[in-house]
Amino acid sequence: MSDHLLSMDEMRQVDDYLERGFKVHYVYENLSGMFVEFGRQEEEVCLQILTADARKYFAAKLQEQTQL
């Protein structure tokens, strides 16, 4: 998959979690990229974001969440 398609897919996953009512609980980054822990009530999921464009996109979404 091209970087562009991969980043589009990762952005779609970020949107998907947020649209389903998940909130960002934790964010950490390491050599493997960015890891985002989403939570909704008792449910928790971890999304690994690999691409640079999606990591930028996620930060913008995180900013929106903090401004709500």
């Binding site: 964010v27 950490y28 980054e29 995180l62 903090t66």
Partner: peptide
């Protein structure tokens, strides 16, 4: 960005 993300660190 780093300031924002650091507020979601464990």
């Amino acid at each position: 960005r780093q300031s924002l993300i650091s507020s979601f660190d464990r």
